[in-house]
Lab assay of single mutants.
Amino acid sequence: SPEEIKAKALDLLNKKLHRANKFGQDQADIDSLQRQINRVEKFGVDLNSKLAEELGLV
C-alpha cells in the first residue's frame, strides 16, 4: 500500500541521514537527504525514482 511504501522510504532515508551526520558527509548531501524526506512526507514515493529502485519496488 502507499502508506507502507512511504513508511519504508522514510525509514531508509532517515537511516541515510543519520549515517551522513555520524560520518560527517558534505552539508550538501545532508541537505539533499532532508529534501528527499520532506518530498516523501508530502507526496509519497514516485515509482519511477531511484528511491523506488532502492526499495525494490521497480
Rank of each mutant, 00 (worst) to 15 (best):
Q25I: 12
K50T: 10
H18P: 01
Q34H: 12
A28W: 08
L33M: 04
L13W: 00
N48V: 05
L51P: 01
A9M: 05
A7M: 12
L33D: 01
L57N: 03
E41N: 10
N21E: 13
N48E: 06
Q36K: 07
N14G: 06
K15A: 13
A28R: 13
F43C: 10
G44R: 00
D29W: 15
V45N: 01
F43T: 04
P2H: 14
S49V: 02
K8Y: 10
S49H: 03
N38K: 14
E54H: 05
I5N: 09
L57A: 04
G44T: 01
L33F: 04
K8H: 06
K8A: 12
R39T: 13
H18C: 13
K42H: 07
L47E: 05
L12H: 08
L55K: 00
L12F: 12
L33Y: 03
Q25L: 14
G24K: 08
K15Y: 08
Q27K: 11
A7C: 09
A52N: 02
R35K: 12
A28K: 13
S1N: 11
K22D: 06
L17A: 02
E54C: 07
S1F: 11
Q36G: 01
D46R: 06
E3Y: 06
E4A: 13
N48Y: 09
I37T: 01
A7D: 07
F23V: 09
S1L: 08
V40Y: 01
Q27I: 09
E53Q: 13
G56V: 03
L51S: 02
L10W: 01
Q27L: 09
I37R: 02
A52E: 02
K42Q: 13
K8V: 07
R39G: 07
L13G: 00
Q36H: 07
K16F: 05
H18T: 11
R39W: 15
H18G: 07
D26Q: 10
R19A: 14
L57Q: 03
L17E: 00
D26F: 07
G44H: 01
V58I: 13
R19I: 14
F23T: 13
E53S: 10
F23M: 13
E53I: 12
L57V: 07
K42E: 13
E4R: 07
K16Q: 06
L55Q: 00
Q34K: 13
K42G: 04
A7N: 09
A52Y: 08
D46M: 05
G56C: 05
D26G: 10
A9E: 00
G44Y: 01
R35T: 11
H18Q: 13
L33A: 01
K16W: 09
Q25Y: 14
R19V: 10
I30D: 02
L51N: 02
L47T: 06
L47W: 07
Q27M: 09
R19F: 15
I37W: 03
L13N: 00
S1P: 05
S32F: 13
I37V: 05
Q34R: 14
L10G: 00
L12D: 02
L47H: 05
L57Y: 09
D46E: 08
R19E: 14
D29G: 09
K22V: 11
R19K: 10
D26E: 09
A9N: 00
L33W: 03
L17K: 03
D29Y: 15
V40R: 00
G56E: 05
L10V: 03
S49D: 05
F43S: 04
F43M: 07
S32V: 10
L13S: 01
G24W: 06
E3A: 11
I30N: 03
G24Y: 05
D11L: 10
K22A: 12
V58Q: 09
S49Y: 02
G56S: 05
E4Q: 12
E53D: 06
E41Y: 09
L55I: 06
S32Q: 12
E41F: 07
I30K: 05
L33P: 00
F43G: 05
F23S: 12
V40L: 07
K15T: 07
K22Q: 13
L33G: 01
A28Y: 10
D29C: 15
K16A: 08
N21P: 02
A20F: 11
N14A: 12
G56M: 08
N38A: 14
L13K: 00
A7T: 09
P2V: 12
Q34D: 03
P2S: 13
G56K: 06
Q27G: 07
R39D: 15
E54A: 05
D31A: 09
G56Q: 06
R35H: 12
K8N: 04
L13D: 00
I30E: 03
S32N: 14
D29R: 14
L10F: 02
K16I: 06
A7G: 05
G24I: 04
R39H: 15
P2A: 13
A52K: 01
V58S: 13
G24Q: 08
N21H: 14
S32T: 11
L10E: 01
Q27D: 05
K6A: 04
A7I: 12
E3H: 07
I5Q: 05
D11Y: 10
E54V: 06
E53T: 09
A9Y: 05
S32I: 12
V45F: 04
N38E: 15
R39L: 15
F43L: 07
G56H: 05
F23N: 14
G24F: 06
N21C: 14
K15C: 14
S1K: 09
E41R: 12
S1H: 09
D11Q: 12
V40N: 00
K42A: 06
Q25V: 14
D31L: 10
R19D: 15
N48R: 11
Q34C: 09
L57P: 01
R35D: 14
K15E: 12
E4S: 09
G56R: 04
D11T: 05
N38L: 13
N14Y: 15
D26I: 08
L55A: 02
D11R: 09
L10A: 01
D29V: 15
S32H: 12
L10H: 01
P2W: 14
V40E: 00
A52I: 06
A52D: 02
E53K: 14
G56N: 06
L12K: 05
K15F: 05
E4D: 11
A9K: 00
E54T: 06
V40F: 02
N21W: 12
K16P: 00
V45W: 02
H18A: 13
E3G: 08
K15H: 08
A28D: 11
